[in-house]
Design a protein around this nucleic acid. Structure first.
Length: 422
DNA sequence: TCTGGGGTCCTAGGACCC
DNA sequence: TCTGGGGTCCTAGGACCC
């Protein structure tokens, strides 16, 4: 039987800020967007802030009302990426089978890692090292598959370690509300409730035909998972295979001026083009998202004959789509996404502007180490020496950076988990 | 005077072909 | 004269997650 860990960082952004500036420790801290640009929602907050009722997605002014002494920081993604690199570098030292799920969580298949001890010992060591070396708290779930490991890591926060065996599923999970299950959101919970399916146990014994008609293929999967079954392997490549790359922005104020909107599309296209270039992929489709003043949102997409990646082509395409479908109303948000990506080397088109070369591949290692040293003021390399095996440590940095370029290009954070953290 | 930004997967309908 | 059914591609939108 496989042994899977799910490592989940606790209130990650806030914890990183505290590691960076220890004077913040023990204080109510929130990471939020810019209120002047009406992006002032709470992205994540410290446990001290949660005691006041501050929650993810709350507007900044609501949070301030609950907790006037709240310290608010803008997100610093560079800092979070750096910390994330450090975390994954540690995970990689216990197994090659590390699958990053987001900037702050990942799966580790430790089935073949007996040399490092029993699963519980390994989890304790990893948690201890992340705390000691990065000054960051995490929770870890230990289980025979991904679903159970993910569920387990969520059960004790912060700094919990939870073992969830398949034989405990009925005892521990079945009494929980269906909405607690990973993969069951608000809408799905409502649909299930309408059929008197209210708990995870109800899902586990529900009629497959009912689930299928209600939720499609997802209904079948939910039933399997509710029974503790999940055959998905831990896939180290999963995060590297991007399907789309997009940028969107909520405008500082609603805009109806066409020139202004086209200019925003140009800027978004430039960012997307840079990322396509960095990933060495071409887009075979372009989508434009328009959210109007009243929050009505449309996406319009165009498949391309010639895959593209330059700012000029992307912007041209985005503008064309926009002008064709924009109804003239004031716009709140614009987004540009390149989709159906293909690798540059597989493209039949002539390419010349990619500056990427073999040398560039070597840089991330040095960069990573320098950043970790600088930003944390902790010598991560010395700590890596703990490993007895310098080669392995070296290798782990290399393999880690190979996925990090793609993976860390984005940021994500946990809403559902943050709410459950309370 | 609410509600960000970056993704994935799935479904359903229409076009088109055989 | 009326009309089958499978398959694929494309598009739009919903749901969910982090």
């Amino acid at each position: 039987m496989a042994i899977i860990l799910h490592v989940d960082m606790n209130s990650f952004y806030a914890s990183v800020e505290m590691a960076y500036d220890p004077s913040l420790k023990g204080k109510p801290l929130a990471i939020a967007g810019n209120p002047e640009e009406r992006r002032g929602i709470i992205v994540t907050c410290s446990y001290e802030a949660r005691k006041f009722g501050v929650k993810t997605t709350m507007t900044l002014w609501e949070a301030k009302k609950l907790c006037p002494q709240l310290i608010v920081k803008r997100p610093n993604f560079e800092r979070y990426r750096t910390a994330s690199l450090g975390m994954f570098a540690i995970l990689q030292q216990y197994s090659d089978l590390v699958e990053p799920v987001s900037i702050d969580e990942g799966y580790v298949d430790i089935t073949e890692a007996q040399e490092f001890g029993h699963p519980l010992q390994i989890a304790k060591t990893i948690q201890h090292r992340i705390k000691e070396q990065l000054d960051l708290p995490c929770s870890i779930g230990i289980a025979p598959n991904k679903f159970l490991a993910k569920t387990a890591s969520n059960m004790k926060k912060p700094m919990g370690i939870t073992v969830l065996r398949k034989r405990d599923v009925a005892n521990i999970l079945w009494s929980l509300p269906a909405g607690e299950m990973h993969g069951v959101g608000k809408k799905t919970a409502e649909k299930l409730a309408a059929h008197n399916i209210n708990t995870i146990g109800d899902i586990a014994i529900a009629n497959e035909l009912v689930l299928k008609s209600l939720l499609g293929i997802n209904g079948i999967r939910l039933k399997e998972r509710a029974n503790g079954i999940d055959k998905r392997p831990v896939d180290p490549e999963a995060a590297a295979e991007f399907k789309s790359v997009g940028n969107s922005t909520t405008l500082p104020k609603d805009v109806a001026n066409q020139q202004e909107l086209l200019h925003v599309l140009e800027n978004l296209s430039e960012k997307v083009a840079e990322r396509l270039k960095r990933k060495m992929v071409l887009a075979t489709s372009v989508s434009v998202m328009i959210r109007y003043k009243n929050r009505k949102t449309i996406t319009r997409r165009k498949a391309l004959k010639n895959p593209l990646y330059t700012k000029l082509e992307l912007a041209g395409c985005a503008k064309e789509i926009f002008l064709k479908h924009w109804n003239g109303d004031a716009v709140r948000l614009l987004g540009v996404t390149g989709g159906d990506l293909i690798e540059k080397k597989l493209a039949t088109r002539q390419l010349d502007l990619f500056s990427y070369n073999e040398e560039a591949k070597k840089e991330p290692l040095l960069e990573t180490v320098e950043k970790l040293k600088e930003k944390y003021g902790k010598n991560i390399i010395e700590h890596a020496g703990d490993l007895h095996d310098v080669k392995k440590a070296d290798k782990s940095f290399h393999s880690e950076t190979s996925f990090s370029k793609d993976f860390l290009d984005q940021f994500r954070y946990s809403r559902k988990n943050d709410e459950r953290d309370q």
